[in-house]
Design a protein around this nucleic acid. Structure first.
Lengths: 171, 171
DNA sequence: TCCGTTATGTCAGTTATATTGACACATTAA
DNA sequence: TTAATGTGTCAATATAACTGACATAACGGA
C-alpha cells in the first residue's frame, strides 16, 4: 500500500525501478543486437568500426569523407585506418567528386554490398522477430521512446517520416 | 498511395525499410544513452569498463569475482586493472568470504554508491524524458520490442515483472 | 593570379580496453 | 597429502580510439 500511495504521488509512472529497468532493457537488447553481426565481422577480421562505415556508406551512396566523419563522430585518423582497409580489400570505392574535385565520394562495391546485406540481414531478422512478436502498436511505441532518447539533430532523420513511414533522406 | 498499397501487400508491416529504420533508431538512441554517462566518467578518469563493474556490483552486492567475470564476459586480467583502480580509489570494498575464505566479495562503498547514483541518474533522466514524451502505452511497446530482441535467458530477468511491474530480483 | 580555406590523407605518439600465456598463493575438498 | 579452485600478477600483444603536426590538392574570393 505504501507502493500505491507512492504511485499517486507520481502520476507520471516514472518510478526509480521502472527507469532502471529501462536501462537494462537497452543494455541487453543492444548487446544481443550487435552480437549477431560481430560474429560475421570476425570472419573477415573486421570490427564494429568497419560495420558502421559499411552501413552508413550503404545508406548514403556517394557520401563524402567529412560527412561520414560527422555521422560517426570519430577523428579522421581513426576513420582512415578502417576506411583504408575497406578500400584496399575492395569493399568500398572512392571516386573524385565532379563539382568539387577535392572530395572523395564513397560507395560500396558489389563485394561491399554483399557484405552489407549479409551483416544487416542478421540484425534485420532479429528486429523482424521482435516486431512480429510485439505487434504493430508496440513498434510505434518503441519508435517514440527511441526518438525521445536521441538528440534533437538525429531525431530529424526520422521525424520527416510519418508513423511507419519510409525514409526520404540520407542517413 | 504507393505506400498504402505496399502495406496491404505486407500485413506484417515488416518491410525492409521499416526494419532498417529500427536498426538506426537503436544505433542513435544507444549512442546518446551511453554518452551521458561517459562524460561523467571522464571526470573521474574512468571508462565504460569501470561503469559496468560499478553497475553490476551495485545490482549484486557481495558478488564474487568469478561471478562478476561471468556476467561481464571478460578475462580476469582485464577485470583486474579496472577493479584494482576502483578498490584503490575507495569505490569498491573487498571482503573475504565467510563460507569460502578464498572468495573476495565485492560491495560498493558509500563513495561508490554515490558515483553509481550519479552515473545512473544521467541515464535515468534521459529515459524518464523519453518515457514522459512518449506516454505510458508507448513505454509498454518499447518494453515488448526490447524483450523480443534479447536472448531467452536475459528475457527472464524482466518477464517476472508484470506490465510496468517492479523488479524482484538482482540484475 | 595570389592566397587563405577546405577536403583529404598521413606520420608519430598515446590511451583504454581487451587478449593469451605463465605462474604464484591460499584455501578447499577429495 | 594432493588436486582443484578462487584470486592475483607479470609480460607481451591487439584493437580502436585519441591528439598534434604536417602535406597536398583544389576551391574561391579579392
Amino acid at each position: 500500500m505504501a507502493d500505491i500511495s507512492t504511485r499517486k504521488v507520481n502520476p507520471l509512472f516514472l518510478r526509480e525501478e521502472e527507469l532502471r529497468q529501462g536501462i537494462e532493457l537497452l543494455f541487453y537488447a543492444y548487446r544481443d543486437f550487435t552480437e549477431v553481426a560481430d560474429q560475421m565481422l570476425a570472419q573477415y577480421n573486421f570490427g564494429r568500426a568497419h560495420h558502421r562505415v559499411i552501413y552508413f556508406v550503404s545508406r548514403n551512396p556517394g557520401i563524402t569523407v567529412s560527412d561520414l566523419l560527422s555521422i560517426l563522430k570519430i577523428t579522421k585518423q581513426s576513420l582512415s585506418r578502417v576506411l583504408g582497409q575497406l578500400v584496399r580489400e575492395g569493399f568500398i570505392e572512392q571516386k573524385t567528386g565532379v563539382q568539387d574535385r577535392r572530395q572523395r565520394l564513397l560507395t560500396l562495391t558489389e563485394k561491399g554490398e554483399a557484405l552489407e546485406r549479409e551483416l544487416t540481414e542478421q540484425q534485420r531478422a532479429l528486429i523482424a522477430a521482435a516486431y512480429r512478436e510485439a505487434g504493430a502498436e508496440s513498434v510505434e511505441g518503441f519508435r517514440k521512446v527511441m526518438m525521445g532518447m536521441m538528440d534533437e539533430k538525429d531525431r530529424k532523420r526520422f521525424e520527416d517520416d510519418g508513423p511507419g513511414g519510409l525514409r526520404r533522406r540520407a542517413g
